[in-house]
Design a protein around this nucleic acid. Structure first.
Lengths: 418, 418
DNA sequence: CGACTTATTCCAGGCCTTAAAGTAGGGGGG
DNA sequence: CCCCCCTACTTTAAGGCCTGGAATAAGTCG
């Protein structure tokens, strides 16, 4: 994943170390030989690097491969107890905070529901801080062993000095979330858009694994995407690439909550689907964001007997197909992953029809090369993705030990299942 | 531009050499110090690399910077006589073949018009070969000094073993153009989509210069784009990324020549504009592709007095704005460059209105960060872009001399304007 | 012409990866 | 139970690369 800026011979080592660590991290127990093949290094160098990584407690040898006559190969894995990370999902209806070990197994979680229409940034910060303190306490992890916090938010995130959030749907305008959190938490903080963290989670552990060019769609109240290009999350100039929900699918069409006309979100967002259903039923009851999930499920369930439900879903499938086709034409991905609670609910029942609709709108060649699949990871994927942020930074840096940090980790024993 | 796969200490040198050469190539005369700063190398190393590059005739010192007391800095430039490249533009109405020196100054050109609706691949190959032979003869360049040929085609290009072209608009299905050309020409051949070559030309020398994230739009009979992401052309999984023309802007809208409904091309392509104008005028005369340019120019000229012309252009502006807004939302570029003969003609007169329409459809934040500008380079940009293909390959490889090649170039003298 | 200033080159030093040679750690046969 | 075989891992010597500082080159200015 890194883009090495190697100029000196020491950067070379850093780069090789980082690449080796990426392989071990992402591709699970691996022999030294496999690492060598994957990274393009001689056995001697791999050995050399591994010695250092083991000494620092970043990597551990877990068991041996079966041998057929010779010395068995040792299996290397990331040391789950090297440190811990926290992932935060600031959703439109709830806060989810989870604590993971370095192998990204969850150790503790904390949820707080806020069926919000507009949320005060200070309140949000309090929720987050409370959640973080709760998971640290709940897991019993030494706070000094926490490597960082990754916060996923709905809305655009600009990465300048500190991350600034523009979250139209929650009424945030240029909220300096990172700075606000930094004032209250003494941990490295990283903030990113929720679709991007979801995408990174699906890329590392889910349905987008192994692809170098993928688009992960996050469909819920809004519609965002994470574009994986050449194996990395594509951000664009100011980190707001992938704003699919406000792509125009009908020039002069329905007015979207963003103010523009004909946005995809105004046709396939959860609010739009529910509203359209009510319209067909001539009903007009206010629906809070928290209720939407149940309502949509009811519509999907009712589709065989309820003409309005069937029609709404037909329309949804068509617009969603067109939207996905646009992604296929523009990005030419190997795979499109449909995620988010709405995305997963729709694909459970309607994926073949969505694919067909996409095929009607996409060019034959790129469409013939793409797989459209449902997301693998569940609802927690956004928080898991948040947790990947500090990890990605660390692994890219090769988990270099800044002495004093190394000291605190040395000597931690590790159970080896072999 | 390269993505270094450095593992050994020799790869390091290759990588540094390539990066230094890229800087000298793209950023014109540069002092050794500037190269050092740009690439992140010490003066000693730059000097060392430059000695090698000069000895091989890749780089030359052209003049000195003014000094104010000390030894003047030498100015380094790529040696234009290091070799020559040929760019071919297979357009929908003509073939254009141009020969350039290593500094990409044009030395000779050859045009052949073919107002084609469907073109036989073998005929196309003959046109190309004829053009290549003509420019070589016309320029008097030794054929052995030609480094390669880059061919730009309308349509999707898959890069497998050899490039295969899927050019719907010219009736090509999986035409193995690269292999066909290789059989008749003994030169390195590279084939790519015309929008991508145009984009690379604009990125190197035109309106997209200096940006790391840009979208270059090629608007003519069809509508393609070149997406520059992190400074490089983005290709996607099978190299067909950027197919903007068949993005859906009106679900259930006009039928496009690709068979789908509501494609952008069916609203803003030259054929669509002309047809719509005729429809408003209740005229129905067949228009050949070659006539389109004149017709469109007439419509643009007539817009003040002719209500139908005004209406057609209004519609075009709106749809084009929506299409550009989609690009802005999805790619978050620093700059959108509008090129192609139609794109340039429209932006000459209507760019402010196009921007405004894009602003109505795009999200505020990414729109506030983007510049929408007209292309800088003229009609030959596609062929120029073709010529950049072999150069890009060479420069990325650091122009390493495979002995026998080096031998033939050594000793060529070079005029130094200093 | 000489002093001064700044660019470029030379050189010793410190790292890095590799190939080759040695060492470690199991299996299997007598 | 010991010894040989096989394969994985480590050690070591060699060859390369970049850097900082010293030395040299090439102008300007008085």
């Amino acid at each position: 994943m890194p883009r090495p800026r190697t100029t000196t011979v020491r950067d070379l080592r850093k780069s090789n170390r980082s690449r080796a660590l990426w392989q071990v991290f992402l591709n699970g127990p691996l022999t030294r030989q496999e690492v060598g093949t994957l990274v393009g290094l001689s056995p001697a160098t791999v050995s050399n690097l591994v010695v250092a990584l083991e000494a620092e407690g970043v990597v551990v040898e877990v068991g041996l491969e079966d041998s057929n006559g010779g010395r068995p190969r040792g299996l290397l894995q990331v040391n789950p107890r090297y440190g811990y990370v926290i992932g935060v999902d600031v959703g439109e209806t709830a806060f989810l905070v989870e604590l993971f070990d370095f192998g990204l197994h969850m150790c503790a979680r904390h949820t707080s529901v806020t069926d919000m229409t507009v949320l005060d940034p200070e309140d949000a910060v309090s929720h987050i801080v409370e959640g973080i303190e709760s998971v640290i306490a709940g897991s019993g992890v030494d706070a000094r062993a926490i490597l960082g916090v990754g916060v996923a938010v709905p809305g655009l995130v600009e990465h300048r000095e500190d991350a600034v959030v523009h979250g139209q749907s929650v009424g945030w305008h240029a909220v300096p979330l990172e700075a606000m959190l930094r004032r209250r938490i003494d941990l490295p903080i990283l903030v990113d858009n929720g679709a991007k963290t979801l995408g990174q989670a699906e890329k590392w552990f889910g349905a987008a694994r192994g692809t170098d060019n993928a688009v992960i769609v996050l469909l819920g109240i809004g519609a965002g995407t994470c574009i994986i290009s050449n194996g990395e999350v594509y951000r664009g100039a100011t980190s707001s690439a992938g704003e699919w929900g406000h792509t125009t699918v009908v020039v002069g069409g329905r007015t979207c909550r963003c103010g523009a006309e004909g946005c995809l979100e105004a046709y396939v967002g959860a609010g739009a689907i529910a509203a359209r259903y009510q319209q067909l039923k001539h009903r007009h009851v206010a629906i809070s964001p928290g209720e939407l999930e149940r309502r949509i499920a009811a519509i999907i369930d009712a589709r065989d007997g309820d003409r309005a439900a069937a029609q709404v879903l037909d329309e949804t499938v068509t617009y969603l197909g067109a939207g996905i086709a646009d992604l296929v034409n523009l990005f030419n991905p190997e795979r499109v992953v449909v995620g988010g609670w709405l995305g997963q609910a729709l694909s459970d029942e309607l994926l073949p029809r969505i694919c067909e609709a996409a095929g009607r709108h996409a060019l034959h060649l790129p469409f013939s090369r793409v797989q459209i699949v449902k997301a693998d990871l569940g609802k927690d994927a956004v928080a898991l993705g948040g947790a990947t942020l500090p990890i990605a930074r660390l692994v890219t840096a090769g988990a270099m030990a800044p002495e004093q940090v190394g000291a605190r980790r040395r000597g931690q024993s590790v159970t080896s299942p072999g």
